[in-house]
């Protein structure tokens, strides 16, 4: 079997309901973006799981390198002052 060019891979993001963000659900192959939307619709929204579809060519996704996870994400771990639980507020004070 000779190897021919295959349809590019697109990552699919679906917004399930208005108010929610688009969530990554998987991927489809398609020759062009219009087809990718149709494929995403036919594969990932058969059970009314979506109101909006984004498709992005997989090669265009830029991802953080798991090997750099420590450098990228560790520093945030000990900056607990970003979390509301770090602050002691008396119970009597409302709306905080």
């Amino acid at each position: 079997m000779t190897s021919r060019a295959e349809w590019p891979l697109y990552e699919v993001f679906i917004r399930a309901r208005s108010g929610l963000e688009h969530k990554h659900v998987g991927s489809v192959h398609a020759a062009d973006a219009r087809m990718a939307i149709e494929h995403a619709r036919d594969v990932y929204t058969r059970r009314q799981e979506g109101v909006s579809i984004w498709v992005v060519r997989s090669v265009d996704i830029v991802a953080s390198d798991p090997a750099e996870a420590d450098a990228l994400f560790e520093p945030a771990r000990d900056k607990v002052y970003r979390h509301p639980t770090f602050y002691a507020i008396p119970d009597e004070v409302k709306n905080l």
Binding site: S3, E6, L9, V28, H29
Partner: peptide, 19 residues
């Protein structure tokens, strides 16, 4: 067919192509 596609998608994340 859709299940096959979800699974091919998952396999492709490991560096093998559908083709």
């Amino acid at each position: 067919g859709g299940h096959g596609m979800y699974l091919y998608s998952a396999a492709e994340t490991l560096g093998v192509s559908r083709e």
